[in-house]
Design a protein around this nucleic acid. Structure first.
Lengths: 235, 235
DNA sequence: TCATAATATTGACCATGGTCATTTGTCAAC
DNA sequence: GTTGACAAATGACCATGGTCAATATTATGA
């Protein structure tokens, strides 16, 4: 238990909602509300990071944020939902990178490799928090995206899957390089496979306290996936 | 929430510990202890199945089993640990099948297919319980096997991974068919990939209330894995 | 049969996540 | 200013998972 992490505070505050810069023109009530939510989020995540999720009580959070216990639940429906907010934030950041990569003229494999590099960087930065997230809510039904048809098919790792899907699709739709991937595999299947491998690798990495190179491990597995398990005649 | 399932009671009782048949010659104390543990396990799982995990309190379990609340914690260190016991039981059953298949003279793909068929059957039988298990503890660190070196590398889905590994290894060590799989892929990597795909597929299936053919879905994904994502020159 | 030790059962007790009626604060209209 | 309507903060309260010292039960030996 416990998962006490070294308190690394290089986390960019204020990124929970992108609106906080715009928040200046909001009515005072709204502005204060947003600020307090942010403060609760930051306080909670900091405590999670230093004391672990289970080792942190809601009262600790609210005392440090200097509000009453009940106030916390005005802003977050549950203790766990703080992690859900974190999950969304992480997903947004990752997806932004993915979208940029999807527009880059590279081979399929190179696009994925670049994506892995980016995610690895983020994972390294978020190590402790990621481990907490994984332990606590990764398979949680609350993370299942309920929107689109395709999305509904995917159950966990909501924060990776859309990005992988975007990259894979971009490749298929990208006339100039069509044909480098097998055409008979639908995007959803490919994305599911890739992100499930990612998920497993990330879990291993997080629980291993970052004891191996995430990028190398993932690259090795992608080698296998690209080339296939079966022995090839032409080799 | 809730996950109320149709109460399907075709679950073989008394299989929590294989010793229960032998239990007849145990001293009375030991025998009673084993029986009570079994009763608590069965009662708990039945309630989980009908009312969901969160919808069942420990008091409900103990009242139905006609003991005091504290007694429960003499037999299980936590409510969740009932699910851990279930997880182990499931793992044992699956692994037995895997070992038998590993000794069967079939091609690599056929061995895996047969294994999938078996697991699919078990999954169908255990549908509700499996969903509960997944929701509650699948990624839980308590499930990480801490023994062997290789095992420690794998983080979740402990109940699938050893089986997949066994089959894959059996194939590699099986002289008569060596060469059908690429030889440069180590067993652990292959097993990780396969079981992570399995995990994702199972999660999707369980949360989809068994709304698609587990076997077909898995087969499709294995096709991709065996052939590889990259376009092949010789096709 | 009794005394003693070993073990199992019990329920009062605690900590904590979460609820909700009540209180406090904010803002606009007059 | 004063008032009233709305929103937010508050902490007493509840439910439940888990602990533990006290009690009851069973086994053993004389």
């Amino acid at each position: 238990m416990r998962l006490v992490g070294q308190a690394s505070h290089h986390y960019k505050r204020g990124s929970l909602t992108g609106d906080l810069s715009k928040a200046a023109h909001l009515p005072r009530r709204e502005r204060k509300k947003a600020i307090l939510r942010e403060r609760l989020f930051d306080t909670a995540m900091d405590l999670f990071e230093t004391q672990g999720y289970d080792g942190t009580t809601v009262i600790e959070i609210t005392e440090r944020a200097d509000v009453a216990k009940g106030t916390f639940f005005n802003y977050f429906p549950s203790k766990e939902s703080v992690l859900l907010a974190y999950h969304e934030q992480l997903g947004r950041e990752i997806h932004q990178r993915a979208e940029r990569i999807a527009r880059t003229p590279l081979s399929a494999r190179d696009r994925f490799d670049r994506f892995f590099a980016q995610v690895s960087k983020i994972a390294k930065r978020e190590k402790v928090r990621l481990a907490i997230l994984i332990r606590q809510v990764v398979v949680y039904p609350g993370l299942v995206p309920r929107s689109g048809t395709v999305e509904r098919e995917h159950t966990s790792w909501a924060f990776l899957w859309p990005s992988v899907l975007a990259i894979h699709r971009s490749f298929l739709e990208d006339g100039q390089e069509r044909g480098e991937l097998r055409g008979d595999i639908d995007s959803a299947t490919a994305a599911t496979i890739i992100s499930s491998i990612w998920a497993t690798t990330l879990i291993q990495w997080a629980f291993n306290d970052g004891g191996f190179s995430l990028q190398k491990a993932m690259s090795k597995r992608m080698d296998v996936l690209f080339a296939g398990l079966a022995r090839r005649e032409d080799s």
